[in-house]
Every structure is written in C-alpha cells, then in structure tokens.
Amino acid sequence: MKKRRISGQGMVEYAMVLILVVIAVLLVIQLTGGSVSNLYCRMISIFNNQSCAQTYCQDSFSSLSGSQMYQGVWSTSTGQLCSPNGGGVIFNKCSMSGTTPSDYTVALNNASLTAGNGYGIYFRATNSGSGINGYAFQYDPGANGFVIRKWVNGAEVFSPTLAQVNAPAGYNWYGSPHTLSVKVVGTTFTGYVDGVAVVTAVDSTYTSGGTGIRTWDGTVLCAQGLTVSK
C-alpha cells in the first residue's frame, strides 16, 4: 500500500503566527495606548483595592519655587498663592517640563476669588516664545459662566469658544473657596467646580502640554495648591 506523506505545521509557521500576533498587539496598543493603560489599571484595582490615581506634579504654594511667573508679580504667603493686581499668568514648572503625560487631571485647590472678572486654569499649555498655546478652563463671573477656550500664540480664541455654560441664577462667585479642576482625556476636556462637572469641550488641536493659572480684569485670587494627577 502506498503511504501518503502529510506534512504538519512546523516551527516556522508557529513562529510566524507568534510574530504577527505580537506586531498586531503592538500596533493596537500604539493606537489606543492611554485607554489600554487605564483599562489595565482599573482591572488591577478591582483585585488589590487600590486607586489608579497617580500624582504627576504637586505644588503646595509654600514658595514660588515650583512656579514660573509669566505675567505679573505673583506672591506666596502662608501656603497660598495670590495673584498680582490687574491680572497675570503663572505656570506650574513641573507640568511644563514636558514630563507629564498627555492625559491628566489638574486641580487648583481652595481658590478664593474676592474681586474681579475671574480666573482660569491652563492645560495642555506650551510657551515657546511666540505666546501661549493650549487651553484654559475659566471660572468667569465676567461671562457669568464656565468657559473653555483655546489659546493660539498668546491670543485667546473667542470665536469659536470651545464651550460655555452659564452659571445658575444667583450663583455666588466671590468669597467662598472652590476647588477648580479639569479632566483632560484625549480630545475631551471636562471642567469641574468642587467635583461637579460644569462644562465639557472637545478639541483635537493640542495633544500635550502643561498647566498654569491666569487671572484678568482686576481679579484678586488666592489658592492653596495645585495638583496634576492621573
């Protein structure tokens, strides 16, 4: 009887399958990197009961050493950073150094506005000499609302405003300290006041950058710390 030779799969085929699977996985991670990382973190946190929170930068405002003044003369006193008269801009040195990832949450803690038209948090901001590029989330009694705008080479882009939501009637802008924060995930930015989401914007212009604070129009602001975390 004639025996038929039937060849099976060899090591070469297995190796090719393995290599192709690895390449495909790497390409998928490259496309979805941040979200995959978050997914792993959330899955692991189910088992070890630990938070995925991770602090990238923290400034307690005990001095100005963690800050980079850009406009106006800011000051610190008893753990508070206070704005200059007439408005100004100050950057968080750590987050502006380029070491923080693209997605983060920046929080300005216990910020008290006692006068003026408002203040804001810069995020995904860069300052290359031609002016500030990035975004700002603004606590804006001058506009009677919460605003997210884009900045291009030092100019605040008013049209289109990325997002603006009016404050509730009778909202008390002044006196009480608030924690203002922005959650930056991909192209979606959500502004919070005391943990409550107040405004959301979507834009894809800037994909990375640091954080800072801005004031304008006679604002008097003091805040007790800035945190950039996962």
């Binding site: 099976g8 085929e13 297995y14 090719m16 399958v17």
Partner: peptide, 19 residues
C-alpha cells in the same frame, strides 16, 4: 509522492494570512 498539506496546516496558513 507529492506533499499533501494537512487540514491543520491549512488553518495555520489561513491564520498567518489573516494576521
């Protein structure tokens, strides 16, 4: 005799093509 490809080998080659 001519080499004949087993069904499993065919599956592997299809998998390689797909990947």
């Amino acid at each position: 005799p001519p080499r004949q490809v087993s069904p499993r080998m065919k599956q592997i080659r299809l998998l390689i093509l797909f990947l």
